[in-house]
Write a protein that binds this DNA or RNA. Sequence first.
DNA 1: AACATAATTCAACAGGTGTTGAATTCAAGG
DNA 2: CCTTGAATTCAACACCTGTTGAATTATGTT
Lengths: 198, 198
Amino acid sequence: MNARQPGRRPGAPDTRTEILEAARSVFAENGFDRATLRLIAAEAGVDPALIHHYFGNKDQLFAASIDIPDAATDRVLGLLVDDPADLGRHLAETFFSIWEQEEPRTALLGILRSAMGGEDQAVEAFRQFLTSVMMAQLAPKIAGEDARLRALLMASQLVGVAMTRYVMRLEPIASAPIDDVIDLVAPRLQSYVDEDFA
Amino acid sequence: MNARQPGRRPGAPDTRTEILEAARSVFAENGFDRATLRLIAAEAGVDPALIHHYFGNKDQLFAASIDIPDAATDRVLGLLVDDPADLGRHLAETFFSIWEQEEPRTALLGILRSAMGGEDQAVEAFRQFLTSVMMAQLAPKIAGEDARLRALLMASQLVGVAMTRYVMRLEPIASAPIDDVIDLVAPRLQSYVDEDFA
DNA sequence: AACATAATTCAACAGGTGTTGAATTCAAGG
DNA sequence: CCTTGAATTCAACACCTGTTGAATTATGTT
C-alpha cells in the first residue's frame, strides 16, 4: 500500500522531497516571510494545496526544511572532542566545510535569513546551535572567568564571516578561496583560547 | 503659512518625527517585512493614511527612518584618519560607541534585520557602510596583497558581535559590559592589521 | 474490470496588506 | 468672521497571503 512512484525515473526524487528542496531554495533566497507557498509550489511544479497535504502548514514545512543542519552540527561536536591546542583551526575548518557544501548551506541560509526576520523557529534553531555547540563544547576548553564570553566571540567571528560571505556576498570575501579565509581566521579564533589580556 | 503646532508643548516632537520614531522602533523590532504600516501608525497614535501623506510609501518611510546612521558613519571615518598602530582598539571603540546609543542602534537594527530579509534598500545601505568605511578607510592602512580581505574580516568580527549582542541577544555577550567586549575584540582586530601569517 | 486509496488539483474562503481619494477637522490670515 | 490650506481621518479598494474542503485523477490490489 505504499511505494507510489508514477512515471518517475529511478533515482529521481519523489514529489515530497522535490517540495522540500524547492522550499529550502526559496527560504534560503528570500527568508521565511518573503517565501510564499505559491512560489515554493511553482518551483516544485506543484499545486500549493499539495504542500499542506504533505506538511500541514508553512511553519511545519519550514521546520522540515531546516532539519538538515542537525546532522551537520553533530559533525562539529564530533570533531571538537579530540583536539587540544589547535582548536581554532579545527573549528574554522569544520564550520566552513559545512557551509561550503550546497545542501547544508541552503538550509543554513534559510535559518539565518529567517532568524533575522524574527521567525521564532529560526531564532530558536540558531540560538540552540550556537549555545549547544559553542557554549557547551567550546567554553569548557577555555580557561578563565570569561570563557563563555570568549567562546561566543569566536562564534561571532564565524557568524560574521558567514553573513558577509554567504548572505550578503560582499567582495572580496565572497570569492576568496575558503582556505585563505580559514588561514586568516583560525589564528584569531585560537587567540581567544590562548591569550590572556589583562 | 507654516509652523503648525496645535496643542503641542514646546520641545515635544511634531507628528512627522513621531511617526519617524515609531517607524524606527517597529522596523528595529520586526524588520521591514513584518513591520506593518498599521502597527507603526498605532504606535505613533495616528491614522495609517497620514503616513502616506508625509512619506509617500513604505519604502520611502524606511529610507527616511535609516538616514540617521549617515551621521554615525561620518564619525567612524573621522576617528579613523589620525591613529597609526592602535587601529583595532579605536575601530572597536567607535563601532560600539555608536551601537550603544539608543538612536543609532534602533536604526541600525532596522537595517540589519531588513537586510537579512532581502529588502533592497537595507542591503544597499549595509553594503555601502561596510565598503565605504571598512574598505576605503581601513584597507589602505593594511600592508600586503590581502589587505581588503583582512579589512573585511575585521568588519565581519564586528558584524558578528552586533548580531549576537544586539539582534539575537545571546548570553553572556548581550549583558556583558561593553568595555569587556572591546578589551577582548580589539586585540584580534589589531592582529588582522599587524601579523603576517604565511 | 472494479474497487480503494493515495496523489493531486480546483476553486474559493477569510484575513491582512499597502495604498488611495474623498471627507472632515483644525489653525491661521485677511 | 470667513475663507484658505494644511493636518488628519474615514471608508474602501485591489491584491496577495495561508489555508481549506471538495472534486478529480492516477495507481496499486483483488
